[in-house]
Simulated assay, not measured.
Amino acid sequence: MNERRSALKLIAAAAGASALPGLARAQGGAPLKVGFVYVSPIGDAGWTFQHELGRREIVKAFGPKIETRFVESVPEGADAERVIREMAQSGHGLVFATSFGYMNYVERVARAFPKTAFLHATGYKTGKNMGVYNARFYEGRYLNGVIAGYMTKSNVLGYVGAFPIPEVLQGINAFARGARSVNPNAEVRVIWVNSWYDPGKEREAANTLLAQNADIVTHHTDSTAVVQAAEERGKWAFGYHSDMSKYGPKAHLTATTHHWGNFYHQTVEQVLAGNWQPPRLWGGMKDGMVKLAPLGPAVPPEVRAKIEKLEADMVAGALHAFAGPVVDQDGKTRHANGPMSDDALGKMDYFVQGVASRLPKR
């Protein structure tokens, strides 16, 4: 089964058999208007860039059948609702809102425009004309952690985080579990920047972690600043969202990369055909939505072989980043046996053993 068919299978399973009646779509040969709302600048690497690559794929695939529009650097607040609402008002039959903090605004606008299809990335709220989609970022993070566990000399690994929400905690915890699976002395230190995209804060956080003896750093933020900081200081780094090797030719070990094009393609096909239903999609490595960038030259051959085997096991379902026991940093067992359920993953609000930092108090 190729990646496109695999993604389609997931969407169909989540959507159900019947189409959404009255959904807005192209009529009389007019193109379907498709909108994208981006939280950060497009640039040439990072979260928004990967979504933009998906948009470009559907432009190429559908040609005059669709007309796309994007708005970049939209904050997660009233501006987001304004942009999403304006897209619906201007006849966009399909709107992709690509950041977690857009969720409540998408939900509000979706209720007001029941004939428009809305898709929200990384959230959990759905509606009659609002679906959600996400990638299992934690799968790549676990494999990054294994590499880090093998290669660290100081046993201190640095992680720059955006916000302490489940999707970010999953990544941090998977990274720690991967590292600890091969190096029980490894520890992960986390600094929060409270922003998805702030290169200045990201760089400052990375430099602080490097000053605390971290010899490998990574990030759940949108810019390339962490990789660049590692390159400048002669340390190693993992990119995120995109292959960031050109920003750190010596530092870049690999990256967890995310791929949205197949999902966007299938969604447009369904809306054009009039059989779209709001999905609840969470795709991973086996679906082609999460991949590792090429391993950098610093990664030893034996580690490459190990990662190839683990990646194959993950794709086959034989390896899960959160197979029990999952124990938090206070020694409490959070999950005893077998793979952790998606529901439990979606509620993750703790650090696992191996993370030295503490979560901010609410």
Rank of each mutant, 00 (worst) to 15 (best):
P21D: 14
H241C: 06
V182R: 03
V268S: 05
E202T: 01
S18M: 11
V303L: 05
K65V: 06
L32H: 01
S357C: 04
G54E: 06
N207R: 14
I147A: 02
V355I: 11
K115I: 01
A237T: 01
S154W: 00
G338N: 12
G248K: 00
A312M: 11
R334H: 11
G22H: 04
I307G: 10
A19L: 09
A112M: 12
R4N: 10
N185C: 03
D215Q: 02
V146H: 02
M130E: 09
T333F: 07
N155I: 02
L143A: 05
T218C: 01
Q353A: 13
A316E: 09
L53D: 09
S223G: 08
P31F: 09
E81V: 12
S223F: 03
K250V: 14
D330T: 13
A110G: 10
K60G: 12
F49Q: 03
A24S: 12
G331I: 08
E76H: 07
A7M: 15
E72K: 14
H335T: 12
G43K: 11
R280S: 14
E167K: 08
T116I: 04
Q27W: 04
Y124W: 08
V132M: 11
K9G: 09
L119N: 06
A97S: 15
Y240H: 14
T333I: 11
Y142F: 15
R177N: 05
L23P: 03
V146D: 12
G346E: 06
A148N: 01
Y240C: 00
R141A: 14
V168N: 00
L295G: 02
V315D: 04
G317W: 07
G158I: 00
H120M: 12
M130P: 02
R5Y: 04
M130Q: 15
Y133E: 05
M130L: 15
G324D: 07
R180C: 02
V71G: 05
G63A: 05
A80K: 08
K291H: 11
A24C: 12
N275D: 15
L143V: 09
S154N: 04
A14S: 15
E308Q: 14
P31A: 01
A12T: 12
D287R: 03
A148T: 02
G28A: 13
F137P: 02
Y240P: 01
A61F: 05
A24F: 12
E302H: 07
A61G: 10
N275L: 03
G200Y: 07
P184R: 08
G296R: 05
V160C: 01
Q277K: 11
L23K: 04
A273D: 09
A273P: 10
A176R: 03
M244N: 05
P301N: 04
K250A: 14
